[in-house]
Write a protein that binds this DNA or RNA. Structure first.
Length: 299
DNA sequence: TCAATTTGACCGCC
DNA sequence: GGCGGTCAAATTGA
């Protein structure tokens, strides 16, 4: 791997730790805006760390022949374990695996664009709810090896922990967004642009140290508390501690007609309230261990 | 009738 | 031996 990338990752990890410390120590009643900024810093850093990790993994694979990979994977793994508190003893997953947390909020099981067949259910030690095992419906006729495990969160039954194993080789037509729904990609890009603008505006606020009163007139806001609004995109990285989860909620102001139009159009054109997680991963919206609130699709 | 789900039994890893 | 993952027969439902 390139040493510069390693330094970037190292520095980001340290920055992330500092920002979280800052956020934890600030008193909510006195400096709400500072808390928001600190949370935003954490969010930005975590996104960058994810990107850097992706770079490193790619470079590491490229340098496999040099035998310098193990240290990197060890570093990343240790960081992952520290931040996610994943027990080191973990059953070996076959090939590609990704963990997703989904808030169901009324819907039993959010559709993810693929058809699955349940082949087993198991009570897991220490877990309040059983784990369900699914395989791709096209396993037999198309030899698709994709699987997923679904388990309700013990802390919050409305949240599903979904682990995807393997890649779909069945080329499910519902997920072929790039070919048949390229306009959705375009709309999604516009949405991301709007997101960037929101963040720029937030930066403007922090630079001008606006008081809470002037904040009220600002149309775009970042959710300050854990309370979730109806139309709220919920971003969370694997590095997010439960205490800081609220910082990743990007509130979409209900009085922003253009944004509402974008979202409702994207949802309605998809025929069903489907958000394809593979699709999101490919777009870089989701990395491994991503929490995604689907409540907006089932309102 | 057939596909999907349920559930107890079995298997392999730690 | 315990636990998680898978198998496969039984059951359900469209």
């Amino acid at each position: 791997m390139g040493s510069s990338t390693a330094i970037v990752l190292s520095e980001l990890i340290q920055l992330h730790s500092l920002a979280k410390t800052l956020s934890d120590q600030l008193n909510q009643s006195q400096v709400e805006l500072s808390r928001t900024i600190a949370r935003d810093i954490i969010f930005a850093i975590e996104k960058t760390i994810c990107a850097a990790k992706t770079c490193i993994r790619g470079e590491a694979e490229h340098e496999l022949s040099n035998g310098r990979v193990q240290d990197f994977h060890k570093t990343i793994h240790e960081f992952d374990c520290r931040e996610q508190k994943i027990p080191k003893k973990r059953k070996r997953l076959c090939g590609w695996a990704s963990h997703v947390r989904v808030s169901t909020e009324g819907a039993e099981m959010p559709h993810d664009g693929h058809s699955w067949r349940k082949y087993g259910q198991k009570d897991i030690l220490g877990a309040k709810y059983p784990r369900a095992y699914y395989r791709c419906t096209h396993r037999k006729n198309r030899g698709c090896s994709a699987m997923k495990q679904v388990q309700k969160s013990t802390e919050n039954p409305s949240v599903l922990d979904i682990t995807y194993l393997g890649n779909h080789t069945c080329s499910n037509p519902q997920q072929d967004y790039s070919a048949s729904n390229s306009h959705l990609l375009d709309q999604h890009q516009r949405f991301l642009d709007r997101q960037k603008n929101l963040m720029k505006n937030l930066d403007f606020q922090s630079q001008h140290n606006q008081d809470p009163k002037s904040m009220e007139s600002f149309p775009s806001s970042v959710v300050l508390d854990g309370a979730k609004a109806d139309n709220e995109f919920f971003f969370s990285s694997p590095l997010m501690s439960p205490a800081s989860t609220g910082s990743n909620c990007l509130s979409l102001p209900p009085f922003d007609p253009e944004l509402d139009e974008l979202i409702s159009a994207a949802i309605s054109e998809a025929e069903s309230p489907v958000m394809d997680f593979d699709f999101m991963r490919e777009l870089g919206m989701m990395d491994v261990d991503t929490q995604f609130d689907t409540s907006i699709f089932f309102a």
